[in-house]
């Protein structure tokens, strides 16, 4: 389960708007093994951010697919609450070492992001890219037809 979260590059984030209409987006993410939190980066203006501000309950799925054999499909679904942290621009000013660590981990995992950032610096500021922490209440792991559920008491 931890392996999937550490090694996969894509996560799918499901949020709900005020009318209980779900919304899904593919995301880059970082898994913090110590706290079991997951971090994603999104724009303050995006639909999912607006949804999370209204309803912090989110669901995030990471999976490994096997197009040949359904019994090899594995994945983790995390259900939890989104905590909107700081915008990327204010990170260094805030001197929050933990969050800066997360941000660095992002750049390490997705080198392409930091490249894109330099070329599109202005765009980044304009969209106020923001770090979001997903605190898991429950994780469901599956492999083929078998499921394991892990709950967290926070």
């Amino acid at each position: 389960m931890i392996d999937i979260l550490k090694e996969s590059h894509f996560a799918y984030l499901c949020t709900i708007d005020e009318n209980n209409q779900p919304h899904i987006t593919p995301m880059f993410f970082i898994f913090d093994e110590k706290t079991k939190d997951i971090f994603v980066v999104t724009s303050l203006k995006s639909k999912k951010m607006k949804n999370m501000q209204v309803n912090p309950q989110v669901s995030l799925t990471v999976d490994v697919r096997d197009p040949d054999n359904p019994f090899n499909n594995r994945g983790v679904m995390v259900q939890g609450k989104a905590v909107i942290e700081k915008t990327l621009d204010s990170l260094s000013a805030a001197k929050d070492t933990k969050l800066i660590g997360v941000y660095k981990a992002f750049n390490k995992k997705y080198p392409i992001l930091s490249e894109a950032k330099t070329s599109a610096q202005i765009e980044y500021q304009e969209f106020s890219e923001t770090l979001v922490r997903v605190r898991a209440d429950k994780m469901v792991y599956w492999r083929g037809p078998y499921f394991i559920t892990v709950s967290f008491n926070r």
Partner: peptide, 21 residues
């Protein structure tokens, strides 16, 4: 693309997301 992701939610507005064919 072989997989689609279905996002649903219950009465408590808790989302749920899993892959399907």
């Amino acid at each position: 693309s072989k997989f689609g992701y279905v996002g649903t939610s219950d009465k408590e507005m808790r989302p749920h997301l899993t892959p399907v064919i």
